[in-house]
Nucleic acid binder design. Sequence first.
DNA 1: ATAAAGCAACCGAACGATAGGTAGGTGGAA
DNA 2: TTCCACCTACCTATCGTTCGGTTGCTTTAT
Lengths: 196, 196
Amino acid sequence: MMSAIKIRNIALSHFAKHGYEGSSLNEIAKEVGIKKASIYSHYKGKDDLFLTVVRYVFQYERRKILIYFQSSKQKPIKTKLQDFFAFIEEGFNQSDTTKLLLRMCFFPPWNLRDKVSEIVNSFIDGMQRALGKLMTFHKNKGEFIGVNIHQAALAYITLVDGVIIELLFTGKNKFFERVNVSFPIYWQGIAAVEKE
Amino acid sequence: MMSAIKIRNIALSHFAKHGYEGSSLNEIAKEVGIKKASIYSHYKGKDDLFLTVVRYVFQYERRKILIYFQSSKQKPIKTKLQDFFAFIEEGFNQSDTTKLLLRMCFFPPWNLRDKVSEIVNSFIDGMQRALGKLMTFHKNKGEFIGVNIHQAALAYITLVDGVIIELLFTGKNKFFERVNVSFPIYWQGIAAVEKE
DNA sequence: ATAAAGCAACCGAACGATAGGTAGGTGGAA
DNA sequence: TTCCACCTACCTATCGTTCGGTTGCTTTAT
């Protein structure tokens, strides 16, 4: 009952740290406190366990992000976009889910790449749609005058990607340093570009 | 004579595609056209081969980037920064070196993480120094008036990171779409921020 | 010039360790 | 009694690695 979830959670941290090929069912079982063979009472095999973990991670992250975007709709969009970085850092720095999510985006295991990239693509699409809807909503409220929504959204995603790399790679401090420098430039930029 | 280099090049493509744990000496040897045991005539073992490849990749990329930055100093900095994206795409598309470089930045093999991150950090530092020097040079030439070099460099690196992700993940077309949207926003932004 | 010695490259075979996976049995709860 | 999580034991395949030996080219000595 509890075991299936416990196995999944511990497998998650292993897959995040060592990747698919670098993780062994033996090590996972050892940390769970059971024997390797017992995993097969809950999952069909390594691939099944791995894909279960990946699906869980992407669903978990998607849900968290969508909730953030849909909350506090009265706040100005600038505040919301700016605070999103703190939101990322908060939820992402403490868990292995983001690490695994990013690993799957860039370096999925070779033999499962089709199934994984299906999950990844659906996630990316969902995020882009959500951001577009949010920005359109705020534009209709009167903010964002004369700004091209599509361009603003695309550049924002690029910005998020760029700082997340720093978060993953060097940590919290450098991350916020980048955010505090880059976001004002982005914000001034999306206004200035349209004025030409 | 030639074998050591041939092994290294083929190992490079394997490590880029499958990572450290996912690559096997057997497969590498097979593609080279020799037997597994023969690799040990040229390298001490898998770790030695891997670290040799990683060192080669980082040195190769560093050299390529530095040459680009030092070339055509008469061109305006805006052109140079803009054209750098095409330069990245070009080099990325034809070789596995960038793929491996990025993999090592984010997901080094667990047992070699210290040695790898030493190589990575030295690379990152070098790049940041080079960009700072380049921007200062152009500022002294009269371009870039009233722009904070440190901020401009940091935001530019963030931008590069963000679009490289897209290049890695979805490919050339989306990459240039992002670049064409994000760079003008960046460029307008670094000017606008200082005018406040 | 020619034979001997050295050497790097390569290979077949085997090593112990470990991988994912299976078969069959134990024990407790419903 | 049925069921299910869990176990021990074992399977085959493959991993990185080592050893002993065979080439064939180059260097050295006579």
